[in-house]
């Protein structure tokens, strides 16, 4: 597992992007403001091309709020990734956050989601029709 973007340190504390085989695993560790969210979006899209990734996991388990702007950014990210031939799965949306999102009227129907990282990787395997991460991890 290699850490990507080690040179860009500005917001590495709140965000990490790791490569695992043909997949990228991006984790958001703390609440991001709009600018940081935008930078995260750009970094991840560039990294998809650079790593020739076929799948992306975005782990939002540490977020206590996903408002309309945050959700919109995630959805756009998934759409951009798709244009590059990569599938995105968002994992870790907390129960309270899911409740708030639905009440607010956010529908992420066109984005794949999974409960946690394990489920997300399994989902990516299904969606890409291959064991990209499985083979890289060397175990099933």
């Amino acid at each position: 597992m290699a850490t990507v973007n080690q040179t860009e340190q500005a917001h590495q504390i709140s965000v990490s992007i790791l490569r695992q085989g043909a997949y990228l695993i991006a984790s958001i560790h703390a609440a991001l403001d709009d600018e940081e969210l935008g930078r995260f979006q750009r970094d991840l899209i560039r990294q998809i091309t650079k790593s020739r990734s076929r799948g992306v996991i975005i782990d939002v388990g540490a977020l206590d709020v996903l408002d309309s702007f945050g959700s919109c950014t995630l959805r756009n990210l998934a759409l951009m990734a798709r244009l590059q031939g990569a599938v995105t799965v968002i994992v870790g949306i907390q129960p309270d956050v899911a409740f708030a999102m639905v009440h607010l009227g956010i529908h992420l129907e066109d984005v794949h989601t999974a409960l946690g990282l394990e489920e997300g990787l399994a989902r990516l395997d299904e969606l890409t029709g291959a064991g990209g991460a499985r083979s890289a991890r060397g175990s099933a």
């Binding site: 206590d64 709020v65 408002d67 309309s68 702007f69 907390q94 129960p95 309270d96 409740f99 607010l104």
Partner: peptide, 16 residues
Amino acid sequence: STDLTLIATAISEVVR
């Protein structure tokens, strides 16, 4: 905790 999240989300929207 659900209400706390609803409140934080509402604040996020109006402040934005």
